[in-house]
Computed example of a mutant assay.
Amino acid sequence: MKTNHILLIFVTVVVLAAVIYTLTSAEDPETYIEKIEAERERQYKFIRYNIESPLTEEQKRDFKELTFYPIDPTYKVKARLIPNEEKKVREVPLTDGSKERYIEHSFAEFELGGQTNRLLLLQAIDETDMRNFFLAFADETSGRETYGGGRYINARQDGKTSITIDFNLAYNPYCAYNPDYACPIPPRENILKIPIEAGEKNYK
């Protein structure tokens, strides 16, 4: 067998192996739903029972459930990571009028709702893992079906130039349950012009 034929067969095998790996390593839809449901159950137990819950003891006695949108995989998006050349420190306003300092790290750019969207990824000043980001956002559901002060996502970089943002994991800040808490307000860059019908709904 000629060398170029051997090389062609080798390349073909490698490509097929890569395709098979990609297909088999993708998260199974049922597994994905189970993962989101498990996280929601964890959230419920924390809010209901944990000593650090934002609920008062009286609220806990009457608390029955958290409300969420149905799990929708289309709201799990792969975003392009666009680093800020100058990672400035921003003083983010809190709901009580005070401020908290974060680093303006990157922008996450993605397609959703028939348009290109961009969100600012903030990083805590004392964050030790440079792949972890804090994402506070508001959208067209804010103040109606979801908390008017916006929602949060804990995002983690999973590629050299990409990050996955799963809006099914969007959760309410503590001040949505108890106004005595001070919570970061989403920056103006993170007010989306589309409805994000995923994640946690407003607490009643």
Rank of each mutant, 00 (worst) to 15 (best):
M1Q: 11
I6R: 15
L7V: 14
L8V: 08
V11S: 14
V15I: 14
L16I: 06
S25F: 12
S25G: 05
A26R: 15
D28M: 03
Y32Q: 02
I33K: 15
A38E: 15
E39K: 12
E41M: 09
Y44S: 02
F46Q: 12
S53I: 06
L55E: 06
Q59K: 04
K64M: 03
T67L: 04
F68S: 02
F68Q: 04
F68E: 07
Y69M: 09
K78R: 09
K78L: 03
E85I: 05
E85M: 05
E86N: 15
P93M: 13
E109S: 07
L112R: 10
G113D: 06
D126R: 05
D129C: 01
M130C: 05
R131H: 09
N132G: 07
F133Y: 15
A136I: 06
F137T: 02
F137Q: 01
F137Y: 15
F137S: 00
A138L: 02
E140I: 09
T141K: 05
G150C: 07
R151W: 03
Y152S: 05
R156P: 08
K160R: 07
I163L: 03
D166E: 11
F167S: 00
N168V: 07
L169R: 15
Y171D: 03
A176W: 00
A176F: 06
N178G: 12
D180K: 15
Y181F: 15
K193P: 03
K204A: 09
